[in-house]
Each structure stands twice: as C-alpha cells, then as structure tokens.
Design a protein around this nucleic acid. Sequence first.
DNA 1: AATGAATGAGAGTTCATTCAT
DNA 2: GATGAATGAACTCTCATTCAT
Lengths: 199, 199, 199, 199
Amino acid sequence: MNGRLKSVFGGRIVLDKREDILQAALELFAERGYYGTAVSLIAEKARVGSGTIYRYFQDKEQLVNELYRYWKTEVANAVKVEYAENMPLRTLFHETWKRWVDFAMNNREAYSFLVAHHHGPYLDKVSMEINEKIHGEYLAFFEVGRQAQVIKDINPELIMAIVTGIFSEMMREYWAGHLQLTPEIIEQAEEACWHAIRR
Amino acid sequence: MNGRLKSVFGGRIVLDKREDILQAALELFAERGYYGTAVSLIAEKARVGSGTIYRYFQDKEQLVNELYRYWKTEVANAVKVEYAENMPLRTLFHETWKRWVDFAMNNREAYSFLVAHHHGPYLDKVSMEINEKIHGEYLAFFEVGRQAQVIKDINPELIMAIVTGIFSEMMREYWAGHLQLTPEIIEQAEEACWHAIRR
Amino acid sequence: MNGRLKSVFGGRIVLDKREDILQAALELFAERGYYGTAVSLIAEKARVGSGTIYRYFQDKEQLVNELYRYWKTEVANAVKVEYAENMPLRTLFHETWKRWVDFAMNNREAYSFLVAHHHGPYLDKVSMEINEKIHGEYLAFFEVGRQAQVIKDINPELIMAIVTGIFSEMMREYWAGHLQLTPEIIEQAEEACWHAIRR
Amino acid sequence: MNGRLKSVFGGRIVLDKREDILQAALELFAERGYYGTAVSLIAEKARVGSGTIYRYFQDKEQLVNELYRYWKTEVANAVKVEYAENMPLRTLFHETWKRWVDFAMNNREAYSFLVAHHHGPYLDKVSMEINEKIHGEYLAFFEVGRQAQVIKDINPELIMAIVTGIFSEMMREYWAGHLQLTPEIIEQAEEACWHAIRR
DNA sequence: AATGAATGAGAGTTCATTCAT
DNA sequence: GATGAATGAACTCTCATTCAT
C-alpha cells in the first residue's frame, strides 16, 4: 500500500497524505531540482490529485520551504552532541562529524535536497532566518575553540567554510560513486579537517 | 556598435554574434539561473533576434553545455602552473591556489556560473566527461604528491574533495558577502588546506 | 447558535440549513457576483459543509436560479398594491413606486442580486419564464392605463422600458453613492417618470 | 478569409491579429461575459494561438480594459453633435438621441459589451477615469439646460439616470425581441424622455 | 543569415462536485 | 443527513522553439 500510516482508529486506516506529499516532493526535488519538478509530478508520485497538494500547502513555494525548514532542523538536531563536562573540543568535533556522516548517509535525499536548495531564490524569509540561526550556532562553537586557543586564530566564517566545504564535497564524491565511505575513510576525512582548523 | 568584431572580410564587418550570445547567456545564467533565464532575454541582451540563437545552438540545453565546457576548460587552463624543474609540491600548490583565486575573482560571472550549474540536470554526457577528465588531471597531481610522501597517504579522491570543498565554500562565502578575501585570508585558507592534506 | 430555527420535532432541534445557504448565497452573490463566489465560501458563511449544499441544490447553477426566482417573486409581491375601487391610476402608480423604493432600500442585497444577475448566462428557462410572467403583469397594468387614455398611446413595452429603466438607473446611482434618495428626490423621480408616460 | 486586412504591401497580405483578437473578444465578452469567456476561446475565435494574445495584451484584464476604453470613447464620439449657433437644447437632445440609437443599432456587440461590463471588478483606474470624464461631460450638458430653465431643477445625476435608464432599457427590450425600433418608436421614446426631464 | 511574430505544450493554481466516513 | 477531504478538468499565463518573411 502506498502512503504511510497516520493512525489506526476504530479499525479504520487513515493515510497521511501530507506526509506522502512531503516525501514525494523531497525525492523529486532532490533528484530533479525545484524547477525541474512539476507539481503534477509530485502529485503523481504521492498518489494524490494535484489539487490535494493545495489543501496542504499554499503553493509550490510554500511546499519547498516547509520541506527545507523541516530537514534543516532535523539535521541540526541530529548532529547535536549532548554536553558532557570536560569533554575536549577535539572529541566534540569528532563526535559531531560522525553524527553528521550518519545523518547524511541515512537520509541521502534529505541531505541532497538541503545542499541543492540552499541558495534557491524561492527560499523565504523564515527559511533564511533558520539558516542564519543554525549557522550562528556553529560559528559560536568555533569561536569557543578559537578563544581556547585550540582552533586557528582566523575568521570563524573561514573555519566554517573549511569544515562544511570538506564535508559536502566528500558526500558529493561518495554519492557520485567516486569515493567509498568506510569508517576508516570517514576518520581520515575528519582528521584532515581537524588538521586544517586546529592551531 | 554592439557586439565584438569577429573579422572584416571583403569590406564587410562581421559581428561575432555567437560570442555575444555566449557572453549574454553567461551573465544571465550566472545571475538568474538556467530556469530563470528565458531564451528571449538572452537574445535581447545579446542584441540579436531570438531565432538567431538557434542558428548557433541547437537549443537552450546545448547553449548552456557549450558555455559550461568553455569555462570549465578556461578555468582548468588558468590554474595550470608551468612546470619548473625541482619546484617543490608545496610551492606548486601555493601557486595553483593563487591562480585559482585570481581566476575566480576576475571572472566572477564565469565562476559563479560554473558552480551554480555544476549539477544541473541539463548537463549532457560531453560536459560530464570533461568534468571527469579535468578531475582526473587534478587527481594525478595529488597522486604524485602522495607517492612523494608529501601528501597524506589517503584516497586521492578524498584529497580532491578536501581541496575543492574548501575552495568552493570559501568563494561562496565571499560572493555572499560573509567573508572578505584579503591576501592574508587567502593565504590562511591555503595554509589550512595544506595542513589538511600534507603528510 | 447559528442558523435559523425551522422546527422542533421529537425534542430535536432542526436547523433550516436550506435557508442558511440561500441567505449566505444571496449576500455573497450580491457582493462578489456569481463567478466570484466559490461554493465553499457559501458553505462557510452558512456554517455548513460544502457537500451539504448539494443535498439541497443540484448544483451552483440551480442555487442561483432558486435564489433568483424567490426574490423576483418577492419583489413582485412587495410592490403589488391592493386594489381599491375608483383609485386613480396616478395614485396607483405613485403607491407602487413608493413600495418599489421601499423594497429596494430595505433589501439591498436582494435588489442588488436581482439586478446583477438579471442577464447571467446561468439563468435557466424557468427563471426566464418567471421574468416574462411578471413582465406581462406589469404590461397589463400599463395597457389598462393606455385604454383609459391616461397613459400615452405607445407600445406598452416602451412604457415598461421607460419606467423600469428610470427606476433601476436611479437605484444604481444610489448604491454607487452618486445620488441621495431623500423622500423629495424619490418624489421627483416618480413625477418625472409619470411625465414621461402620461398622456 | 478570417481576420481583417491590415495592409497590402508588395503584394503581401498582412492580417492584423490584434484587431482580430479585439473583435473576437468583443463578441464573446458581449455574449458570455468576462468570466464566461476563456482566453483560449478568444484565441480560437480570432484564429490565433492563445499565446499570441499575450503578445498584444498583458493579460485578460488588460484586454477587457482596452476594449472597454476603445468603445467607450467611440460611443462618446459617435453621439457628439457639432455645435451650431443658437441650436435649441431640445434640438440638440433630439439629435444626440438619434445618434445614440444609430450607434447602438449598428454596433450591437459593442453596445452590449459596454453595458454588461460597466461595473465589472476587472475595470482598472484608467477605464474608470474615462467613465467619470464622459459622465461629467453629459452632466455639464444637463446643467446648462437646468440653468437655462429648460430642464427640471433637480439633481443632474437624477436627470442622467432618467435618460440613460430609459435608453438602456429600450435597447435591451429591442434586443430581447420585445420591442421594434421603428423611427416612429424611437421618436416616441425620445419625446417621453424629454417630457421626463423638461421643465 | 537574421529576424521576431506566432505557436501550443505545459506550467501552477482554482474550484465545482463527489463520496467515504 | 452531514461532512469536508479529495479530485481533476479547466483556467490563465509562460516560454522554448519554429518559420515566413
């Protein structure tokens, strides 16, 4: 049966079409991009009428924004490491890196979608504010490291660029089939990244 | 007169419309994206009739591909350092990095265009093969460094991902206005990059 | 509680949803026109499900027709003056005019609705027949006046056109805010109308 | 051959598609109303592709407005009587009335279109300003008559309502097939109208 | 060779109507 | 009887591509 189960109540099965639409849109946007994906295609994949999409989302733009915010938040939560007293920054970084890779590998479509739609002109103010907020949190992390003289004394934006650049390129090569991501290679990448930013 | 001079032949002035079209398309694609740029807009900017575009290019897709291949090759040539006997790899890397930054900063539209269209579904087989080919040349460079035990003994694809990731993310932050690119910061980035890959 | 009470039967309160729908439709059609009013909007205003409308009316077209017939008949009844022996035609006309104005001013929505939907392509045969019938009754009235040599000896259809034309244009200007309708002005209009048709 | 001739040049026949579109739209809007007329229907009737309409008009709304302004101005010009020294107002009114009837009878579609679209919510500011302007000119005419003590001393807006009301109802009955418009009847209507407004 | 008017397929969106609950 | 989620035909409009000039 298509569509995921929302609830079973009184013996009745209720399909959550909203979820189906979001999932179909995620896959199609990730694969074909925003402009390359017709609303009717999303409808078809979600097995709903195209009018149904407009019951749940104001328009195509709102749909892509909801998707973006949802997964942006998901990945931010997924990589968050619970604070442990006296945990060295090095360990924290290592832990975060591992979670990040885990998330990306387990949610290929979501991760690809986020990367590909990061600078789309259809992203609205709210989505951009979420971006800024999450970006700020990461910056703060590196700022702490810099003040603790663990991380290089250079512009934190550059630190960020280094880390995210390495990560996203690595994932890209992985999905392009050019690079395997064995635990060993993941470690090597993380180590290289650390070498780039450590003092 | 608009349009660049191609040649003067038999007393007639011939404008190189093909060049005009490519230049107009480059600027518009870089600024508005592939889907956001109507063919008629390119024609207007190039000061030709829109039908004329179809004399020089089969369709919009071929146009974007020709543009992509041209600039992809240009940047590859621009960063190529002429071989000097006994030049240390470190110097070679340093030199390449500087040229790369130079190219990007002096050809903002071309660079932006390349990055933005790198994964478009309209890129054809030929463009992708060019990508592979250039990718391979860089790989070979790092392979040499690895065998010389200057660069880390890890998958050259990962080395590549590290270098290109850092570079493209740095440029992105620069164009976004988040990061200044002073000579000092460019050096810092290059140094960090080297720290990431050196043995 | 919303909706008017239809009846209390067997201890159950029955709301007259049909009336609610007709009233909501009247207000919306008058304000926004037939095409500007979505069925779901009528349902919302009437506080019923949109499917409920289709229990009482075959479709949107039947709804507008029922409404039209109802109010067309209402206004015809409202302007009817009970016959009094020896009442001069002049007095009858004067009386009718006053009632007509009264009706229009006290039932703005109904009056506006009738005027605005008078020539809609959605009006069916039955509605048009009702129009013809009422039209015929008025014609008969003027025919009497003509034979009594009180009214001009011209085609009664023209007499009708004169009277209804003046009235509807006057009301239109009133609703548009261009013309006040003081008792004095109403009298002046009636007098002018009489001057137009009297012998 | 469909479409009117724009010009014959060098033996070539050029069809003026803009005119074809306007004519087709006029007929359809007059017959079916603005909302009842799909753009594709106009295209079909004008024998052009539907995209062609958008070469000549920004959108459906601009099309209806252009049409409205054009015919509103045409009718205003058509009824204008050239000023003759000492011409009595009565004669002027008589003359105007005749021209008005002539115009309406010779341009049924245009006249019907104007009446039916006079209060559409799609009319833009410019169209409404034209309405106001023409309306003002007629008002001034009646104001002159009032001050010359030829016309009743009542609100000129009411005078206008009387005249336009009679005229439009008369035409409506004519087109509905209820009323013939012989020269005699046209005269009778004019005379009745004058009786309504003369002092 | 060059043009740009013309095309029509296909986009996003609305809404009258249906029907499972 | 009543609901409102679901539908898909039909709407307005865009734009890559063609072709008569």
